[in-house]
Computed example of a mutant assay.
Amino acid sequence: MTIPFFDGHNDFLLRLMKTPAPREETWLGNTGRGHLDLARMKEAGFAGGLFAIFVPPVSSGPPPDFKALMADPPYSLPMPPEMTHAQAQPDALTMAGLLHWMERAAPDDFRVCRSVAEIRAAMAEDVIAGVMHMEGAEAIGPDLDALYLFHDMGLRSLGPVWSRTTAFGHGVPMAFPGGPDIGPGLTETGCDLVRLCDELGILIDLSHLNEKGFDDVARVSSAPLVATHSNAHALCDSPRNLTDRQLHMIRERGGMVGFNFATFYLNADGTADPGTSWDVMLRHLDHLISEVGEDHVGLGSDFDGCVLPDLIGDVTGVPRLFEAMAAHGYDAPLIAKLARENWLACLERCLT
C-alpha cells in the first residue's frame, strides 16, 4: 500500500525554470531526469509539498557547481554577493508563474493551495497540493510591499535567507565542518519581515539562518518555529544542521523539522556520498524524534536541489524509506505522522 506523504521542501521550480521551453515534458513527461515529475510523484504517493522559489546567484560566467565544490570536505565556499530585489524579482515571478502553470497543465492532478483546508481537500480528491515557498527573500525588497503580492499569489512559507546575506539577515556558510553560530542575525528590516509574515500567516523557515538569526525569529515571532529541511548537527557537523538547543526550542514552540535527504547533511564526514545507508538516515530521524518529539518531525527532501542517497534515488524511493522505517521499528501510526500528519498539523498552527 502506498503511503501518502507531504514534503517540506523541493527545488523543482528552479529546475523547471532552467528547462528550455516547452516545459510540458519536464512536468508531465516522466522523462526520468531530475527527482520529480507528475507521474513519478503520483506513483510514489507525493500528496503535497512546499515548492521553493529560489533565485540562483548572479554570475558573469557559468553558475558555480555547489554539489561538486562540496564533494570533498573540508570546504568553505565563498558566498555570492547580496542581490537586490530588482535583480531577484524577475526569476522569482517566473517561478511563481510556473507553479500556477503546473496547475493549469494538470488541473485534475495538481492544485495550488493556500490553506490547510485546501490541502486536505486536494488530498481527499487525490490531487497533489502545491504550496508556494520562498527560499531567500531577496525578491521581496526592503519596503516589504512585494510580500503582499506574493501572498496573494499563494506564498505561505518563506525563508528570510538562503546561505548568502540578504537585506533581512545572515545565513550559514556553505562549509564543513562548522556550527551555525556565525555572524549577526536578522537585520531590523528582517525583524519587520518576520512580523509581517506573522500578520499574514506566512510560515518562517529557519533552515538557512545562522544561530543568531534563529534566535531573533524566536524572539520576534509568536508562531511555531519551523525548519523545513534540516538535520541533526550532533550527527553531521554542518552549519546547515540544527543543534540540540535549537531542536529543543522547536519542540517547546510546537514547531517542525523536515528531515533532509541531502547526503552532505547526513554523513558524519560531510561527503555527498550517494552510497549513504539507511542506517545513517535513520540515525538522524531517531535523533530528531528524540530531541523534538515524534509530533514535530516530517520530511523535507530537498528534491532537485541535492545529491540523494542512491537508496532513494528520486521521489519513487520514498516508499523504500518508509519500508526502512518499518524495519527499524517505527509502527504505522508513527510513520503516518512522519509522512504527512505532522506537517498538516504544523501548517494548521502556522497559517491563517
Rank of each mutant, 00 (worst) to 15 (best):
L242F: 13
G305C: 05
S238L: 03
T271N: 04
M256A: 15
D269T: 05
R320P: 00
L282C: 11
G254A: 06
G258M: 05
M249D: 12
Y265F: 14
Q246M: 07
A234Y: 00
P319R: 04
Y265D: 12
D279Y: 04
L282P: 00
G305P: 03
A227W: 05
A272Y: 07
A262F: 14
E323N: 06
A262N: 06
D279I: 01
T271A: 15
T243A: 09
L266R: 04
M249G: 05
L311A: 11
G275T: 10
D302I: 00
R240S: 01
G270C: 03
F264P: 01
H233P: 04
D269W: 06
E323Q: 11
R251G: 06
A268D: 04
D273P: 04
I250S: 03
M249A: 07
I312Y: 05
I250K: 13
G305K: 12
D310E: 13
A268E: 07
H233G: 02
N260P: 00
S277M: 10
G305S: 14
S222K: 11
V318S: 02
L288W: 08
S301W: 04
L299K: 00
G305A: 12
D295C: 15
R245A: 15
R320F: 06
V257A: 05
R251W: 10
N231H: 08
G258I: 10
E323I: 06
H284K: 05
D295H: 13
E294G: 14
P239M: 05
L242Q: 09
L321D: 01
G298M: 14
G255L: 00
T316Q: 13
T263A: 09
V318F: 11
A272G: 07
G313V: 12
L225E: 02
G317F: 08
S238I: 08
F322W: 12
L247F: 15
E252H: 11
D237I: 12
N267A: 15
A227G: 05
H248I: 11
S230P: 07
